[in-house]
Nucleic acid binder design. Structure first.
Ligand SMILES: [Mn+2]
Ligand SMILES: [Mn+2]
Ligand SMILES: [Zn+2]
Ligand SMILES: [Zn+2]
Lengths: 141, 141
DNA sequence: TGGGCGAATGATAATCATTCTCATTATACT
DNA sequence: AGTATAATGAGAATGATTATCATTCGCCCA
């Protein structure tokens, strides 16, 4: 179970990925949940030498190629995941916990989407915010 | 059309807002587009003395009360808007420009939502990412 | 009406994820 | 091999957001 240098298909034509970009993408594909850049860096370091800046640059490139997406974590860090994982969450505004939805409510909407401007859609983000059961009770007032 | 100190109704029971929290909320209601915390601070300063920290604290409180929501701007700053404005965007991954959608595709979905866990939903965020027409051509490869 | 107290505020420092710089190294191509 | 170009890493810089902490405000009640 290692370096699948096969993870390629995407929204773009033909992404020529560097070894590091491919390594980042592979780790993201191996993980069940979204990872922060720094978590990614730690995981990658277990197998090879790589700088943090390179991880950030790889993430930027992969995102521009429509291969990965990101959402904002509770503590102000971006969480990255492959575009193919169409996963959404209920997120608590108080404690930051995220509860996964069991299916995407806008899957087919994206294809039917009729933008008023020409635009090439790679992916979407959808998230519901509110209060989880415990937090809903201990809210002041 | 000015300072409605009446902007109150929300998802929560009875939000007792401070003068500053109300001022922040009022400015957000007056603006057509989402504002960053620092833009808000500048606008508020035109009418009254208020510290930047207070603006951030007001935003946090208003968010916890389900009165406002935020999305990540292109340059790493959070953009705040009232929850009542159900507006979504196509955002370009390359240049950061945002193009508004003309209607929300998940409006009624939110009410029908059947979470696997008890959860009080205040609002949702939905955004489509990709490349705008100009950027789609000048992408390397 | 004045005192007391907890919440709110503001100035400022601290935090910390992300980005920038720049010297070095790998890669592609002839 | 030799050169041009892109990628990399270490570390410094950036900048939005948070934490501190001393001061002030709003509010209740004797
Ligand atoms: Mn989806
Ligand atoms: Mn909506
Ligand atoms: Zn919670
Ligand atoms: Zn663009």
């Amino acid at each position: 179970m290692k370096s699948d240098s096969s993870t390629q298909e995407s929204a773009t034509s033909s992404p020529r990925l560097t070894r590091n970009q491919q390594a980042v993408l592979d780790v993201l594909h191996q993980q069940a949940d979204a990872l922060s850049a720094q978590e990614l860096h730690s995981l990658l370091r277990e197998q090879q030498a790589i700088g943090l800046a390179t991880v950030y640059r790889a993430l930027e490139t992969l995102k521009l190629h429509g291969l990965i997406k990101s959402r904002m974590g509770a503590n102000g860090e971006a969480l990255y995941s492959p575009v193919v994982s169409d996963q959404h969450y209920l997120t608590c505004l108080q404690c930051g916990q995220s509860f996964p939805l069991d299916h995407c409510p806008v899957q087919e909407l994206e294809t039917h989407l009729q933008p008023s401007v020409p635009f090439k859609v790679y992916y979407h983000t959808l998230e519901f915010f509110g209060l989880c059961e415990p937090c809903n009770h201990q809210i002041p007032q």
